[in-house]
């Protein structure tokens, strides 16, 4: 029995603990389900990274233009991340020496240092790739 639509539920954190560990064991041994999981996670990732469309002003009060939906709030995080890539704003500890802080540089410097550690692993590299 393959996992089928449980794969999406697994990805979305919609499986209970028992079903989740069953899914993990199955995934670890079934290349078919792994590639299907890969396909749905790729689709999901692309939908989540669609840019946020700005509604006309009459639909949203101006003070709420930055509202983040509390539960998953994915849309706006993506927008924020995109904004961060386009303009890295920020200043050094010495306010007169204005050095922009960019999230990717911060993550890269962390991972560079972490890679000296014998505990370094690929998950750390993922942090940079998927900043």
């Amino acid at each position: 029995m393959h996992l089928g639509d449980s794969l999406s539920a697994f990805l979305d954190g919609e499986l209970d603990t028992g079903a989740r560990s069953d899914a993990e064991s199955h995934l670890a041994s079934c290349p078919l389900c792994r590639s299907e999981l890969e396909a749905v996670s790729e689709s999901s990732r692309m939908l989540k990274s669609l840019p946020v469309a700005e509604p006309p002003a009459h639909l949203v009060a101006p003070s709420n233009v930055r509202h983040l939906r509390p539960r998953r709030g994915r849309i706006l995080v993506g927008a924020a991340a995109a904004a961060a890539l386009i303009v890295g704003v920020g200043f050094g500890v010495n306010a007169d020496r204005a050095v922009p802080l960019q999230l990717d540089e911060v993550v890269e410097q962390h991972v560079a240092r972490a890679s000296v550690d014998p505990g370094f692993n690929v998950l750390q590299v993922q942090a940079v790739v998927d900043r």
Binding site: L50, A53, P55, L59, A61, N64, H67
Partner: peptide, 27 residues
């Protein structure tokens, strides 16, 4: 309106693929 307007609009926009339709629908 203020908490969900933007989300409703985005929902409508992705379903219709069209800004004007999304705006009408959200309204």
């Amino acid at each position: 309106a203020s908490d969900y307007g933007r989300t409703i609009y985005n929902f409508a926009y992705r379903l219709t693929g069209n800004r004007d339709d999304a705006s009408d629908l959200a309204q």
